[in-house]
Structure formats: C-alpha cells, structure tokens
Design a protein around this nucleic acid. Structure first.
Length: 217
DNA sequence: ATCCCGAGGG
DNA sequence: CCCTCTGGAT
C-alpha cells in the first residue's frame, strides 16, 4: 500500500471512530496544562493526574508557583520521574512567564520553548491543544506508532516524524491526529508487545503487513 | 528488564 | 551525536 493511501485510511478510520479524541491529562486552564505536560515527561498520564490536584490546589496561579521554592514544589511531585529537574523547571518556568510574558502562556512555539522545561514536544502540545494550531507534538507513542503504521518512512528523529506528519496529514486533522496516535499507542500499539490481534487498523498497517503477512509460495 | 505524552547539557 | 536525570508500573 502506498504511503498516501495509508494516510487516507488512517484519517478515515479515526475521524469516524474517535472524532472527539483529546488529552487524558486533567487540567482546567492553559497554565495547568503547561504544568501537567512538563511533568508528563517519561511518566504516565495516570500518575500525573494523581498528583496534580494537590499541586494545583497549592499553586492555583502562576504567581503562587513563582513565589514558591524548588524544595516545596519537589514535595508535591516527588513521585513522578525526575522530580528534582522538574521542580527546578516548574519554578523557572513560572518566574519567566511572569517576567517576560505577563504571566500568560505564550502562543508561539518559538516563545514556548524559551521556558525552562519546555522543549519542542511540550511546546507543540500547548500550541495545538490550547491555541488550536496545526502543530504535531511527537512523543514516544507518536514516534513509534507513526513508524509502525507506515505513515513515516526513514524517520529516525522526532523532528523528522513531525515534519512528515505535518506534510502529509490534512491540516485540519493534525492536532487531533496527535491524540489518535497517542491513544492507539497507549492502549493497542504497545511498545513491547503490540496487540495486533485486537487492533482494528491492521488492514493498512505496515508493521502488521511485514510481521504477519503470509509469504507467497 | 523495559517502558512511560522529554528536556537540558556536553 | 551522546549522556544524565530518576519514580513507579508491568
């Protein structure tokens, strides 16, 4: 199957079966989403959702977070991955938001990545989810699933995957396709043992084709 | 042992 | 490009 056809099948299937796909991180405003996404690095969303209620209760606004300390923030996030780094990033992020962005989460990716703890992936999440921009955030799931399905070819870096997805996906589906890929990777196309036996989209999957297709003759 | 919505620094 | 950070689930 041609790559172009895989894209068509991909959009056709998920726009029909999951037109409301969205993040599973709990948040109620851009500031909270930014904090949650920074915390989510190398950590399950489920774990993040377990600790953010107390965190947001203590730091309901950017100002409260900026006025805190690495030690106090650490005490709220000690059960996530890399709590020391993330405590420093959150404090620095909050202080920079106030110093340079009037306490508001900026809209441009180029501004977002200036914030401590915010790399390209996090910036693209904020850009697409908060500001409805056609940005593709490539995390471990998007990277793995795109390559398995055959939506990308010879893409060895997250940036290469991002460029190909943005190029070949219909513009209006880029933001939601991020969530389609995440959710598919999280529940079906698992990293260690993909559940091909229950996967509904093997009919256009390159990985399934290569792995399970009977050889002629 | 490997993975989870990575980022920063060398 | 590489390495480090670093907790919990499977």
């Amino acid at each position: 199957m041609l790559k172009k056809e895989r894209y068509r099948e991909f959009v056709e299937y998920f726009s029909t079966h999951n037109p409301e796909a969205q993040t599973e991180l709990n948040y109620s405003n851009p500031y909270e989403l930014l904090v949650a996404v920074i915390l989510s690095a190398q950590c399950t969303d489920k774990r993040i959702n377990q600790i953010t209620p107390a965190l947001f209760d203590r730091f309901p606004e950017v100002d409260a977070l900026a006025a805190s300390s690495v030690e106090e923030i650490f005490s709220y996030i000690r059960s996530v991955s890399y709590p020391n780094n993330k405590a420093k990033h959150l404090l620095g992020m909050a202080q920079k938001l106030i110093a340079e962005f009037q306490g508001e989460v900026p809209e441009k990716v180029e501004d977002l990545v200036k914030l401590p703890g915010v790399g390209r992936k996090t910036a693209n999440v904020i850009s697409s989810v908060v500001f409805n921009k056609p940005a593709m955030a490539v995390d471990t799931h998007v990277f793995r699933v795109s390559n398995r399905l055959g939506l990308t070819s010879r893409a060895t870096t997250p940036l290469a995957v991002e460029k190909q997805l943005v190029k070949f996906l219909p513009k209006e589906t880029i933001a939601i396709a991020h969530h389609w890929l995440i959710l598919h990777g999280r529940y079906i196309c698992l990293a260690r043992k993909p559940k091909c036996e229950i996967c509904p989209i093997t009919y256009f999957c390159k990985y399934f084709e290569k792995t399970y297709q009977q050889k002629a003759g």
